[in-house]
């Protein structure tokens, strides 16, 4: 078996990130409603085998998985609830771009 290279995480807890506004036609793990929205990394996990490759029978590259917290009012302009309400979603690194510091 080939040697597995160590995985370097591109983001750390607290980093602002934006979910890529990318719309592939096949199997994707970033929910549509999160794409293009910005949040903050709250937990770094993995690496895991990329499920978007495994879905097509490939082994899948090892990728970091981030728990990204997004404010509900940033997701939905008409959100009804508290300003502190949030959503946390698990996203592979390739779905993320650096975001702006608030």
């Amino acid at each position: 078996m080939a040697k597995e290279w160590p995985i370097v995480n591109r983001y750390r807890v607290g980093d602002p990130v934006t979910v890529r506004a990318h719309f592939p036609s096949g199997h994707a793990r970033a929910p549509f409603y999160t794409r293009g929205h910005s949040g903050e990394v709250v937990r770094v996990t993995g690496p895991f085998r990329n499920a978007e490759e495994r879905a097509y029978g490939r082994t899948g590259a090892r990728v970091p998985l981030y728990r990204v917290q997004i404010r509900q009012r940033d997701l939905w302009p008409d959100y009804v609830g508290s300003s502190g309400d949030t959503l946390v979603v698990d996203l592979y690194e390739h779905w993320l771009e650096p975001g702006d510091r608030r």
Binding site: F48, L65, S82, G84, D85, L87, V88, D90, L91, Y92
Partner: peptide
Amino acid sequence: DVRVHDSTAD
């Protein structure tokens, strides 16, 4: 605060 967790991956 309400925090929703969308379990999308592993």
